[in-house]
Amino acid sequence: MTDPVAQPETAIIVLGCPEVPVQQALALYVASGLRERGTDVLVTGNPSVLGLLKVSDPKSVYIGKTLVLETCIGEIVERKRDCTLCIVFAHNDAGIAYAATMCHLLPKSRVVVVVFGKDPEPLAAEINFPCETITEKAVHNPAQLKTKITRVLGWAVSRT
């Protein structure tokens, strides 16, 4: 049996453009799972993606704190914010650029890049910076990606 992955104290979940449906479901799943296990979670993304999450979770039961991406990056650059775990959702070139930025700005953090969408392999191939990657072709069905994320975050073990 694999040792359970240590529960991070703080996590930042970086979301890309909301045009790929699985991101919304997985963001709620990951944020909720981390918070349930005691992690202080911040979800960041552009105003559209945060708006979608807030409408889906009006009482903030699952997502918790949110912050607009530019502000979040500014706070990290200015050393006002950091995290133990950073999860970046990337389904386009911009997502990979944001993942590279987070890796560079958070050298002591565990960075997990979730590469998804219609054709994730070429995107994943662009990653030449130190991080963990989860790659899965996923647009509407989050099941496979959820399984992989659950495994990487160590939740599959901790729940048995």
Partner: peptide, 12 residues
Amino acid sequence: GYKLFDEYIIGL
């Protein structure tokens, strides 16, 4: 994270 024209530059 480099700041240019008051914007943080993103990328690889």
